[in-house]
Computed example of a mutant assay.
Amino acid sequence: MLESFRTVSGLDEETAWKALQHYRKAYADHGADKSEPYDGIIDLLKHLQSAGIPMAVATSKVEDQATRLAQRFGIEGHFINVCGASDSEGRASKADVIAELLLRLQSEGIDISNPAMVGDRSYDVAGAAAHGIPTIFALWGYGEAEEASEAAAVVPSPEALLTLILDYIPRPAAKHDNHPRLKPTNSTGQYAQSNVC
């Protein structure tokens, strides 16, 4: 949102920060309660968890609001961690959020050697790329198709995302190894995902 206030609205730095604070207050007071998960998302999360694929959230939303939404929708149990923006800890960009999430996952013993990001904005793609992480672009989200130009793969629906993941992620070789590896899905180098941010 801060970047949008700067670039789309053309606000100077000080005004953009003030606008962000007003936006966050309005979202916390009213906006969050109007949110609903996209159709198919809850089933997608259930299937991915059943398949043993570790998932976490890396969002530009303020972390406490992201946690609140996950709890409201009853999906917090699908995620190892929910990481969001934090002014007090200096996490503003998506790259910052992903960096913190990777540290958290690593500290919990999660294999982060081959993660993938699922996102719907160019900020997701760029933020993940800053850490060498490929992005699967979700066309059903807020972003426009043009924002997917640097994504490793593009999917039109949660059902298509599930198919992509399950078709191209090898099953673990042993019971104790439940962290599938990221593998190219075809000769163009598109990717399915293992750990999902």
Rank of each mutant, 00 (worst) to 15 (best):
L161P: 02
K61Y: 05
P134H: 13
L2M: 08
W17S: 00
V118Q: 07
K34F: 03
K61T: 09
E76S: 15
A32E: 05
L69V: 09
P180V: 11
N114G: 15
S122N: 10
I169K: 12
S113Y: 10
A28P: 05
A174Q: 03
A92M: 11
A192E: 13
F5A: 07
E147V: 04
G84Q: 01
H30M: 03
G127T: 02
L182Y: 07
H176A: 14
H30E: 10
S50W: 04
V97E: 10
S194I: 01
S107K: 12
G77Q: 11
L105K: 10
A145F: 09
G141S: 05
N114C: 15
S86Y: 02
T59C: 07
H131S: 12
R91W: 01
T188V: 13
S149I: 08
F137Q: 04
S50C: 02
D111C: 06
E63Q: 15
T67N: 10
P172L: 02
N195A: 15
A173L: 15
D120R: 00
T188L: 12
D64Y: 12
G132Y: 14
I112H: 03
L101V: 06
M55L: 10
Q21N: 12
V125T: 07
A16T: 11
D177I: 12
A145L: 07
L103T: 09
E76W: 01
A148K: 02
A58G: 11
D124T: 08
A58P: 07
D124A: 05
R6Y: 14
S157E: 11
F5E: 03
G84I: 00
N195P: 13
I75K: 04
I165W: 04
L166E: 08
A85V: 08
S4T: 07
D177W: 03
R121G: 08
T135R: 05
P37D: 02
G52H: 04
D87Y: 13
C197Y: 11
V62N: 06
A32C: 09
A116G: 13
M55E: 06
D96N: 14
A70M: 15
Y27M: 08
G40F: 07
M117T: 10
Y168V: 01
D39K: 01
K175S: 07
T163L: 11
H131M: 10
T67P: 02
Y123P: 00
G84H: 00
V196Y: 11
S86T: 09
G127D: 06
S187T: 12
A151D: 01
C197I: 13
V154R: 15
H47T: 06
F73K: 00
E89C: 02
R121C: 03
